[in-house]
Amino acid sequence: MPPALRRFLRQPAAVAGAVILLAVIGLAAGADLLFPEDPFEMVGRPYLPPMTDGFLLGTDTLGRDLAAGIVHGARVSLLIGVLAALVVTAIGLVVGGIAGYAGGRVDTALMRFTELFQTIPSFLFAIVLVAILEPSLEALLIAIVTVSWAPLARLVRAEVAGLRSRDYVQSAIATGMGDIEVLARQILPNALPAILVAASVMVATAILFESGLSFLGLGDPNVMSWGLMIGAGRAAIRTAWWMCGIPGIAILLTVLSINLVGDGLNEALNPRAGGRA
């Protein structure tokens, strides 16, 4: 067993997070087997509380099965979360990598540009973007990526700039190794643990972001998601709190599990860092 994996498995919280996360992934993957019907379909009497008439989590104001919504909603959350994290990491690697490696004026210019994205209030910015693009999954993804790539680019820049001044990198440059090769073979492998941890946290942030936008009715109206369910259940909050409560617990558990895995990865990959602040 690799030592990093052993260090990960030694942390009970991280293992618990991994188990929950795997369960959510399993539900998302088996959604069509578990609930073959369309989650938008009316299948029972409306306003059924959990555990009645064969509905584990009850029904919503339109008689839709909440359990089917939760399972199908897991797909959207995970899809948006993972895709957003991948794209954000790619942009962060390019922008932060160039800025940190080149230094000087290029660095200053790129960081000013990055700063701009950190100044504009991100949720408002995302709303404007969705308004321009029309609500859809692609629009959600573009909006989330646009407002969240900046912190990751700064992190990559800091890592790359720090590593670039190390002796071993300087000697690689001195031996005539090309820039791309130095970046790819000398710098990136050492910057990877920190970037990996940040990317895992990014998945959680993107899921929270997506749920907020969907709650406001800015998600894809044709795709069942947890935020959409909470938004739809809101009208019945006085009499049927579970319609909002249950999807929220699903978001909470998923985000929590990803954060725990992220903390565990940090501990496993940077054993000397002593944990994130």
Binding site: G212, I237, C244, G248
Partner: peptide, 18 residues
């Protein structure tokens, strides 16, 4: 802190209202 970190704030608000 771990729970507050993972909760969507709009949902927390709704649950607080309840």
């Amino acid at each position: 802190t771990v729970l507050a970190y993972a909760s969507p704030i709009f949902w927390l608000g709704l649950m607080f209202i309840v």
